[in-house]
Each structure stands twice: as C-alpha cells, then as structure tokens.
Simulated assay, not measured.
Amino acid sequence: MTDKQDSNDEIQSISLKFQSFSTADPNLNPQEQSKITQPVPKMNISTSTHSLQDGKKSSVSDDNLPVRNLPELNLPEKIIFVIDTVKEHDCTSFKLGTGAKYTPLFMIKRVVEIFVSAKSMLQRRHEFALMTLDSQAAHWVCDFTSNVKSILNYLDTITEDTLEEEQKTYDLGQAFEKIRTHAHLPATGDSFVPPTFVTRVILIYSRSHCVPKFQTSDKDFEQLTENPYFFLDSLFVHEPPSSENKCDEAYAELTALDTKNFSYILEVGRNATKLHDNMAKLMAHPLQRPVQKDTCYTIHTSTTSQEVHTNV
C-alpha cells in the first residue's frame, strides 16, 4: 500500500493487539461466565431484538435466548470481505497520534490486510475473497484463495469511488445477489456429518448519509442465511453521529441483517485504535465464539473486597 511508512510506528503498535485479542473462555461454567460477562458497547440507538426464523438450525432456550445446535469445530473458513469504497462529500479522515491523516478506505484496507495475515497464520487452510461496493453496483474482485500475497495484491488495487450526487439509500439486494452467485456454501444434507468448511461474509460499510436497504429483492439474502454454516458479520465505519447524517438509520439496517442472532455487528467512528480492536474481535471462529452480547475482552483480577470489571 502507498504511504504506509508515515504511520508504521503507530499502526504497528495498534496492530499487535490482533495477535493477543481473545473472546470469552467457552470452557467457563455459566456461573463463572456471568461474573465476567457484560454486553459489548454499541451505538446509543434503539434497535429491536430479531427473532429466529423457521427452518434455521438454531433453537430458543426457556429464557428466550438463542441456542446454536452446531458442532464447535475449528473448520476452515471461506471469508468474503465486502468493502464499501464510496467516499462521501465532506468525509472526515482518520487522524493518528503522529498527526497523519488517512481516508476511511485506506484504514479499512490496512486492517483487512492485518486480519488476513493474522488469520492465515493461525490456519493456512482459510480462504479469502474480495468484493467491493461502489455508488452504482457491487463488484467481485478476487475469488477464494489461501494465497495471502495474492489477496493483498488485489486489496491494493481497490480505489475510492466519489459520489457524483447524494444518495439516500443503497440497494443491498445487488450485493447479496453477487455473493450468492460466487460464494461456496457448505453442504448440509446430513445433519450428523459436519461440512468441511464454513462461509462467512464480513461487510464493511462506510457511508453515513446513505442507508443500506433491500430495494429490489432479499431472496438471495434469505437463501444464503438458510444455510446454518453461513455467517454474516458487519462493521460500520461512520462519521460522528449527528442530526445531519443517517448513522443511526444505517446502523439499524445493518443490525437487522442478523436474522439468526449469531452475527457480530460492530461500529466505529474515526478512531484508529477502535477500528483495529473491532477487526480483532472478528478474528474468532463463528462456530466457537460466544454470541456478541456474552463476549468479554478483559482479563479480570479480584480486589480485596470487591471485583471490578470493565470491557474494552
């Protein structure tokens, strides 16, 4: 990537967190887990809890919490990064401690690069693909590959798309149509035999004035989510929320994509550290991580009379 040298020291220190970030220990019993579990912070907006749909390989417990009836196996992942390339008018840059400023797309490409390198180091059987969203359509950039150098070369070719006129909505239907056309979905014919891989989409959306919605059809989205081994995570990289933008509405629509209650829906403003932290949270395997509201990223120590707990 260009201009990386100017911010190497700062981004390098932030990037080291990728290797050490971990989710809550799945081996803790419920009593131990409840002592350290707190909800992951989100934007201060009101969103409804989405109920599980019929036909999904999930169930609901007595206290109305989602229960996933899938084996907690470390299967290879086929990960599709869907990267929003649109630069809106009056876009605010990321500002690092060194004073250097970078566009949202530059920072997004940077954290995707770190994610791919770290994830591949953990297991070389993981495969990655790239898609982009511009002002007009969705584009398939790179097919699935486990070759890290190849995927990073394609990542470098992604450039910004500047809006010619203000858009109030973006059609997600075309994006999921492209995903369904190119994605490899695990076979689920025999419920007793797990598949050889899982498929995960990581949608990185960065428009604050344009709300992502299904305008044409959501049939491709429904077909994808019917597969219990298909997962969808979202990372919303946005301007500071205000009455002049639509950050709340956009975030609410991204949250609504979590129809099975097993997605991770994350958001970040123009904070480089939090951007790296949120990508680190997506490193965990979707079959082995807890549901988002039960995650905890802090190592706790007890005091003499009272335990103090905090979340990152």
Score class of each variant (00 low, 15 high):
Thr2Gln: 01
Ser7Thr: 11
Asp9Ser: 10
Glu10Ala: 09
Glu10Cys: 06
Gln12Pro: 00
Ile14Gly: 02
Lys17Asp: 08
Thr23Trp: 14
Thr23Arg: 12
Thr23Gln: 12
Asp25His: 04
Asn27Lys: 11
Gln33Met: 13
Lys35Gly: 01
Pro41Cys: 05
Ser51Arg: 13
Ser51Val: 13
Leu52Gly: 13
Gln53His: 10
Gly55Tyr: 05
Lys57Met: 07
Ser59His: 14
Val60Lys: 15
Val60Ser: 11
Pro66Arg: 07
Val67Met: 08
Arg68Gln: 12
Leu70Ala: 04
Pro76Met: 02
Glu77Thr: 09
Ile79Met: 07
Ile79Asp: 01
Ile80Tyr: 00
Ile80Ala: 03
Phe81Gln: 00
Phe81Asp: 00
Val86Tyr: 08
Lys87Ser: 13
Thr92Leu: 14
Phe94Tyr: 15
Phe94Ser: 11
Leu96Pro: 14
Gly97Asn: 14
Thr98His: 01
Lys101Arg: 14
Tyr102Met: 06
Pro104Arg: 11
Phe106Lys: 12
Val111Cys: 06
Val112Pro: 10
Glu113Asn: 11
Val116Met: 03
Val116Phe: 03
Met121Val: 12
Arg124Asn: 10
Leu130Ile: 07
Met131Trp: 06
Thr132Tyr: 00
Ala137Arg: 10
Asp143Phe: 05
Ser146Met: 01
Asn147Tyr: 02
Ile151Phe: 02
Asn153Ile: 01
Leu155Asn: 02
Leu155Gln: 01
Leu163Asp: 04
Leu163Arg: 08
Thr169Leu: 03
Leu172Gln: 05
Gln174Glu: 04
Gln174Pro: 00
Lys178Arg: 12
Ile179Gln: 05
Thr181Tyr: 07
Pro186Val: 01
Phe192Ser: 15
Pro195Gly: 07
Thr196Ser: 12
Val198Ile: 15
Thr199Phe: 03
Ile202Phe: 04
Ser206Asp: 11
Arg207Ser: 10
His209Trp: 04
Thr216Arg: 13
Asp218Ser: 15
Asp218Ala: 13
Gln223Glu: 07
Leu235Cys: 10
Glu244Met: 04
Asn245Arg: 01
Tyr251Arg: 09
Glu253Lys: 13
Glu253Asp: 04
Leu254Gln: 06
Lys260Arg: 15
Ser263Glu: 00
Leu266Phe: 13
Gly269Ile: 07
Lys274Ile: 13
Lys274Ala: 13
Leu275Ala: 10
Ala280Tyr: 03
Ala284Trp: 08
Pro286His: 01
Gln288Lys: 14
Val291Trp: 02
Thr295Ala: 15
Ile299Glu: 05
Thr301Leu: 14
Glu307Phe: 10
